[in-house]
Design a protein around this nucleic acid. Structure first.
Lengths: 255, 255
DNA sequence: AAGTGGTCTAGACCACCCC
DNA sequence: GGGTGGTCTAGACCACTTA
């Protein structure tokens, strides 16, 4: 009975990170390491609170956060289940470039046009809430599918030392992955999406004519505290890409 | 001191609706009726639990739900505030046409191009999971802001009897409102967004040149059981509209 | 120091599922 | 009936803000 076959409990109460977040991560870890497979049932809540040494309310807060990230689903009277690929709800999550590539069976690649530090202009500084003139890292890449140019991605963000930017091969790296590895959590992206005509530069990079339709998405990506961390504009050739997402409508007050 | 100047408490424990939802609605009501104005501070949590006769945990669940719908914001140590226009977080759902109009202070209107029943084609039938040849209602409208044509909205959906379609003035009606009034809940919309060039018809309706950039969003709107109910394509003039939303990224394990 | 939101607990009761 | 998730409570302690 001392056999803790499954989720264990190294949660620490003195950490600045709330217990429920630690619990959520502990559960996620069981899934990513394969100890809990897709579609399988979790131990009952009353077991988990013992193993994790937290209260049921706290555990449920962790479980709830995993529901809203689409990792778990609950079934009243039956139990908690790891979300299956098909059943996976992605409320408000945009399919990423590499996810799209995988879905279509195509190989994604990048051509780096620019990867350097530069002092922030007034506009850039205001957008990211940093001091004008402070160091920003600018990254500009052509994104390709099976070698065909599909989009131009232009991003900038504060050149934080812990990112170790000089060591990175941006033709392969994912910006989200880099940030995540540095312990920086990106949780929200305020986005605007519009259609424009291609300007000369963009037309050249994408191999299309000037004036052809371009799908432009601007995102201001924030951490959990709402601090803006990355500004990004990605411009897709209109006839080569399509954004996919699934919106869920909020249940407004019963007017 | 018996003066309950503000939020009162007609919550009923025997209702099928959870207490925290009732509480959330009660608070929303105070805002929509103007008793709590934009930017103003709410009474402290420990007051509210007395007035509403609920526990603090339950109240906080209600408050939290209003945060995620962008109605309230909290400030540690200071209090709860009604979200202001400027502080307004991006909608977690896609901002609707009329919501956008309201945000910009413009008057939305519609010109009806088509509003009639027609038998479903094979493609239409497949998309909505109905029998080919069954009655679909087709609605096509030009959407305007302050009289300026901004988009063409083309939708079709099964001609359900309970919708009472012949009695509706589609130049003013919202499709979502009609469905909601008929007791039909629209909860999810699988969406694709792309940029195209305007064809001749669209150019004519929007008063722009052929080939100008168009932002086209296709939505397949589903009820809570995942049944497709409405297929809709809305095509915006690229230089007159911009979609706004806020994506949340799943918090993956801290690997 | 007082007031306020943020986190957490232990325990209760209910509704649903399956045997 | 026994197991499971869903809701709710009363009370505690902590962290931040304001004076």
């Amino acid at each position: 009975m001392a056999k803790t076959d499954g989720i264990v409990a190294p949660l620490q109460a003195d950490s600045p990170e709330p217990l429920w977040q630690q619990a959520a991560k502990a559960i996620t870890r069981e899934i990513t390491t394969g100890k809990l497979t897709s579609g399988s049932r979790l131990p009952p809540e009353r077991d988990l609170i013992d193993r994790l040494s937290i209260s049921r309310v706290t555990l449920r807060r962790a479980l709830q956060s995993l529901v809203s990230s689409g990792v778990l689903v609950s079934s009243h009277g039956r139990g908690w289940y790891v979300a299956t690929e098909g059943h996976q709800e992605f409320p408000q999550t945009l399919e990423s470039f590499s996810e799209t590539a995988a879905r279509l069976g195509l190989t994604p690649s990048s051509e780096v046009l620019r990867a350097q530090e530069a002092p922030a202009t007034l506009d850039e500084a205001e957008e990211l809430s940093v001091a004008p003139g402070s160091k920003l890292f600018h990254l500009e890449r052509i994104r390709k599918l099976d070698g065909v140019p599909v989009a131009v991605d232009t991003s900038y963000f504060p050149a934080m030392r812990e990112l170790n930017l000089s060591a990175i091969d941006f033709s392969a790296a994912s910006l989200f992955r880099i940030m995540s590895d540095a312990g920086i959590e990106l949780v929200r992206a305020d986005s605007t999406i519009e259609a424009r005509g291609a300007d000369w530069t963009l037309a050249k990079h994408l191999g299309i004519d000037v004036g052809m339709p371009i799908l432009a998405m601007h995102q201001l990506i924030e951490d959990s505290a709402g601090r803006p961390l990355i500004s990004s504009i990605i411009r897709y050739a209109g006839d080569r890409y399509r954004l996919r997402t699934s919106f869920s409508r909020t249940v407004k007050s019963g007017g």
